[in-house]
Computed example of a mutant assay.
Amino acid sequence: MDTTAYLNAVVEQTSTLADWVDGGDATTPVPTCPKWTLADLVDHVGATQRMVAMIVGQRMTEPSSAFAGYVPAPSDSTQWRAWLNGCAAEARQAFESVADDTPVWDPSGDAAGVPFWSRRLFGEACVHRADAAATLGTRYELAPELAVGAIEDWLDTMTSRGYWENRPDFATAMRGDGQTLHFHATDASGEWLARREPDRVALERTHGKADVAVRGSAAELLLVVSRRRPLGSATTLEVHGDRALLDHWIEHMDWVTDA
Rank of each mutant, 00 (worst) to 15 (best):
132 A>V: 05
108 S>Q: 11
127 V>P: 02
97 S>L: 13
136 L>S: 02
96 E>A: 15
79 Q>G: 13
133 A>T: 09
112 A>W: 01
118 S>A: 15
129 R>F: 12
90 E>T: 15
98 V>E: 05
107 P>W: 12
141 E>I: 06
107 P>E: 13
146 L>Q: 08
147 A>Y: 01
115 P>V: 00
138 T>C: 01
135 T>F: 00
99 A>D: 15
104 V>Q: 12
99 A>R: 15
86 G>S: 09
132 A>R: 04
95 F>T: 01
92 R>K: 14
132 A>H: 13
89 A>V: 08
110 D>E: 15
127 V>Y: 01
130 A>C: 09
117 W>E: 03
138 T>A: 08
142 L>C: 12
115 P>H: 04
125 A>V: 01
141 E>K: 09
135 T>D: 10
108 S>W: 14
73 A>P: 02
146 L>E: 05
142 L>N: 06
143 A>R: 14
132 A>C: 12
126 C>P: 02
143 A>Q: 15
118 S>D: 02
117 W>A: 00
135 T>E: 12
133 A>E: 10
143 A>P: 00
113 G>Q: 10
75 S>C: 00
79 Q>D: 14
131 D>A: 05
76 D>C: 06
112 A>Q: 15
80 W>T: 01
147 A>M: 01
78 T>V: 11
117 W>G: 03
119 R>N: 07
114 V>D: 05
112 A>G: 11
